[in-house]
Structures are given as structure tokens and as C-alpha cells.
Design a protein around this nucleic acid. Sequence first.
DNA 1: TCAAAAGTGTTAAGTTTACACCCATGA
DNA 2: TCATGGGTGTAAACTTAACACTTTTGA
Lengths: 225, 225
Amino acid sequence: MTNYYNHHPKFYVAVDCIIFGFNQGELSLLLLKRNFEPAKGQWSLMGGFVQENESVNDAAKRVLSELTGLTDVYMEQVGTFGEIERDPGERVVSVAYYALLNINESDRELVQKHNAFWVNINELPELIFDHPQMVEQARELMRMKASTEPIGFNLLPKLFTLSQLQSLYEAIYGEDIDKRNFRKRVAEMDYIEKTDKIDKSGSKRGAALYKFNNKVYRKDPRFKL
Amino acid sequence: MTNYYNHHPKFYVAVDCIIFGFNQGELSLLLLKRNFEPAKGQWSLMGGFVQENESVNDAAKRVLSELTGLTDVYMEQVGTFGEIERDPGERVVSVAYYALLNINESDRELVQKHNAFWVNINELPELIFDHPQMVEQARELMRMKASTEPIGFNLLPKLFTLSQLQSLYEAIYGEDIDKRNFRKRVAEMDYIEKTDKIDKSGSKRGAALYKFNNKVYRKDPRFKL
DNA sequence: TCAAAAGTGTTAAGTTTACACCCATGA
DNA sequence: TCATGGGTGTAAACTTAACACTTTTGA
């Protein structure tokens, strides 16, 4: 019996991940130096094909977890890239996602096994296919989102200093922020809570460690940095 | 010969269009009352399947044009919906787009032939599948975009009054705007140009007609309404 | 003549920006 | 003792919000 869906072509559907990490004032992406075909030897995003038994969003989570060992990572869809010739091998429609994670929580061995490297976002190598556009769109989207929602904390350890938080936002926006104005804004956010712990690693004097309290945030979700 | 792409499943890829129109102070969507299967008799967005010879973006343009007769319409990708069971008939990955067009320029016959109707955005019927989420995301995205980029003019005739422009933005934001503050902001945008034409249809006194000058806009692209 | 929409400025409140010095500590 | 990053307040500039009356004209 013929039906509505016949006579239409089917396509490979892939996901590609723009994986953001932050360490010592630097924002980085986790990129693959491909030791497999196609485009062996070139740099690319981590990607994979959507399977029958998973949603597209789940495929993105799976692919991210295959590379980093992490589950429950903050991810957001960037967009779908569907040019006919975007992948020169076969026609593949790809859905791009960005992820924000704490570099130190990722599984180094797994990362190494995939021949993946953290690359400073301002020193990206040439990427294959339309991955440069994916990265560009992801950065833009992430920047926008980070300015109005508290997603940046996903890039930091659970406890962080205000200097770390500030340098994170400086890296996201690509511009310097005034320290006193920054701290004034932070002070108004009750869900960024000072703990009684001190970080002595960054300075002799030591800096107060803060944490993000999501329960408090959700009671009155306002954020602007 | 076996290669990288084998062993992976393929999927139907569809596009769905959230088509915004504006008329007499009302923002509407163009919806189908389906006289075909599946979900015959129910309301849905206009959609269609991506073909081999077109990009996903081009498929969206084609589908829009099949319904409205219009080409060169402002469209933006909303996101991709990839839940396994989102379409109960078959597995279909769908990419949603929103479009902004002038209702009066659309081909009424074509619209009628598809059994499509303009429905006030505040009085939407129940929609099939995940179309309600698509609409919700599209509204949100459109609202954001309309506040910082001059896309609203796509919903208006080439010549429009400031009252029309204001009521458009009131419909987009779902809230009233102060007339004097609104006109003050418009006056600062040199690319919203007063013409010497008068619209007498909306009032006895008549209102000046304005036009959006994209060339002037691009010289100094700042927009905030 | 009057109803209905068009058009027009000022002030107060709130937000954003610029800016410089003292503190605590370990080396 | 001194070099290093941590921590703190105020004032000016700018932006946003609130607010009410006069004009024009066709019915």
C-alpha cells in the first residue's frame, strides 16, 4: 500500500558538537585531528550519525559522551546545516549543538583516544566542510545566551572565584570588563553565593570562593552579565 | 566497497513553516486545515519533505512558495525537531522555519486551494504533533529578532503609517507601547523615511506614510524597537 | 460640531560607565 | 619589604519611562 511518506527521499542525519571549555582565562574548543576518513588529517568538530533508536538531541548527547565520558552536560541546538554538497562524500544533513563543560571533568584518556585537543578559541585551525560556520553561529548564540542566562557556570568548577568568573565573561565577550562594575552586578545576584572557602592557588592573599545556587536562581530568574 | 557512511540509517527530512502575517493590528499565522492524511481534519503548519535536489533551506522556500506563491520571503530557521515518535506515522526529522510576509501579497487562490487560513496568533487552534512547540519557539525567536533587527517591515506594505508600525510591534511584543516614546525612537532611525504621501484610509485627518530604506540602514545598522 | 486618529516635549527615575586606591600574604 | 592579585564606592553620563493636550477633517 502506498502512503503519504513514500516517494520522498531519505537522508543521513548527523550531529556535530561545538564543545566549549574554559581553563586559566582561556576559552577553548575540543576539536578532532581526524585520523580517519573522510578528510583524514584535517581538523573537525566531533560528530556522529543519528541512529534509529534515539532522538536527534539524544544523538548529540551520545556523541558528546563518547568523546568526553560526560553525561548531563549543558547543550543547546545551534541549527541545521542542509546544503546538498556540504559533505563531499555523501549527502548528510547535520544538526549542530554547542556544549559547555568543565575541562577537568572530561575523561582525558577518552579524549586522547579520539585524537582530540583543546584549542584556544582565538587560535582555531582550519576546519573541514561547513564546520567554520557552525562554530561561528555557536559562538554568537552562546555569547547571547550567556549574557542573559546563567549558563556560564557550566564552564567553571562548582566553586570559583570572582576573578575566574570575570575572566570567563571576558573570554566569552572578547573584551575587558571593569572589575568594580562586574562585582557590583554579581553582588546583586543573590544566587551567586559566597562560601566560607578560600582559594589560595591564584594569589597569596587568597580569594573567596563562590557558588551558583540554582534553586535560588529559579525563584527569581534574572541574570545579566 | 564499504565506507564511512554505510551502516547508518537514513531518515525522512521535512520542513515546517510558521508563517506570520499582519493585518489591521492583528498578527496571524497561516495554518492548514488538513484535508489529507495523516491527521486529516486537524490543524497543522504547512510542511513538506526535503528532496534530493535542494538544500533544506531551499525546501523551506519551496514549501512556502507552494502555499503562498511568494518567493524572496524573509525566513529564518527556528530549529530541528527530532524526537523518534514526533510524527506517529513514520520517523521524520523536521526543520522548522518562520516566515514574515505581507498577507496582501500572498496568492489567495493558492492559499484557498490548500485549505489554509490566517488565524489570529492569540486564538490558535490545537495543532498536531509538535507543531505547538515549533510555534512557541518561532514566536520567541521572532520577537527577539524583531527587537534588534528591522525584520518587521516584511510584514507591512512598502508604505506604512507610524500607527501601523506601532501596532505591529505591540502585536509582536503583546504589550502596549507609549506613542510618544515610540515615535521618538523611530525619529532617530534615519532609514525610516517619511514620504510625502498620506494615508487617508485609517483616519479623517490622514497619516503620513513612511518607508524603510535598507540602503541607509546598512550604512549604520542599528535598530531597537 | 464632534468623534477619531495624528501628531508633538519635558521631566524624573533608573541604569550604565568611568575611575584609583588600600589590603593581605608568601616569597 | 615588596610584588601580586583581592577587594571596595561615588559621581557623571546616558537611557528609559511616564505623562496630556492640540490638530485636522469627514461625517
